[in-house]
């Protein structure tokens, strides 16, 4: 009996190891080949990059058609501003939705929920035309608001549920002390929302950082994803350079993920589970 159990455990571990290798292999290939010259890549794709070369990285940085700094800047601005704005407006809206029990607030809640099901492709063309009619040019500022609009549904929903689970007494006590609603929210409630905020920030932030379709179709804003997509074109014959681009896109995310792994998992799954 015991021996059988042992055998099963070993079998399980072997299975998991094989699967882990399969999952990691493409990532390993991408990272190790970034530091190899292109000729070696096809002959020995699995070998370690010894001696490593930074030739590929250098040619990416030096390429006249790519501006890595600009891409990182755009992506960072979009991610930070988009996430911050989403958190602010959604948490405030959720405060209203969770604490006011009127028919109107109920309706508003459903109204915000509809957005979760929307296949985003439906709004690209109308958005282009809307911007034209308002004579707003494409650009990072507009895109920030577009990202916020796309994430409000999810974030508001999460915050509303979370605020529901918090006792109202604290807020009432603060109000008796003469605090305004605004103060109550920012000074008392918002700090309590921190776990929820982390979850939302990761979900929204990562979503914006990795988004490809939205910046591509709304004016081809050079974010890291769109930038790499357009830059790889002329170099697609040289895998070393392609891998170097991928390296630039993926490395920040992998590093942050390994540091804040728990938060990532919560952030990306909690949303789905609550929904």
């Amino acid at each position: 009996m015991k021996a059988k159990k042992r055998a099963v455990t070993i079998l399980q571990t072997v299975f998991l190891i094989i699967l882990a290798v399969i999952v990691l292999l493409p990532i390993y290939i991408a990272i190790s080949n970034t530091f190899k010259v292109s000729d070696i890549i096809l002959d020995q794709p699995l070998s370690l990059p010894i001696p490593p070369t930074i030739q590929n990285i250098v040619s990416v940085i030096k390429s006249p058609n790519t501006n890595m700094l600009e891409m990182y800047r755009n992506s960072t601005i979009l991610m930070v501003a988009g996430t911050a704005l989403t958190v602010i407006v959604s948490s405030m809206a959720a405060y209203y939705l969770a604490r006011v029990k009127t028919k109107f607030s109920g309706m508003l809640r459903v109204y915000f929920l509809i957005g979760i099901m929307v296949p985003y492709v439906i709004v690209y063309m109308p958005l282009c035309i809307l911007l034209r009619n308002l004579s707003i040019p494409f650009g990072v500022p507009v895109l920030i608001f577009v990202f916020v609009s796309g994430n409000i549904s999810f974030a508001t929903f999460m915050y509303t549920n979370y605020i529901h689970s918090l006792p109202i007494e604290l807020e009432e006590a603060a109000e008796i002390d003469g605090a305004t609603r605004f103060q109550v929210f920012w000074k008392i409630l918002f700090p309590l929302l921190r776990p929820c905020t982390t979850t939302i920030a990761i979900f929204v932030g990562l979503g914006i950082w990795n988004d490809f379709q939205t910046p591509l179709l709304l004016g081809q804003i050079k974010t890291i994803t769109v930038g790499i997509y357009t830059a790889v074109g002329p170099y697609s014959a040289d895998w070393g350079v392609v891998f170097a681009y991928v390296f630039f896109a993926a490395m920040p995310v992998i590093l942050v993920y390994l540091v804040a792994q728990k938060n990532f998992v919560n952030g990306l799954t909690a949303g789905a589970l609550k929904g």
């Binding site: 063309m125 282009c128 035309i129 911007l131 034209r132 009619n133 004579s135 040019p137 494409f138 179709l217 709304l218 004016g219 081809q220």
Partner: peptide, 11 residues
């Protein structure tokens, strides 16, 4: 497609 996007968006 790029030019048409620019056209639709007024840019």
């Amino acid at each position: 497609a790029f030019w048409k996007t620019m056209l639709s968006s007024g840019s």
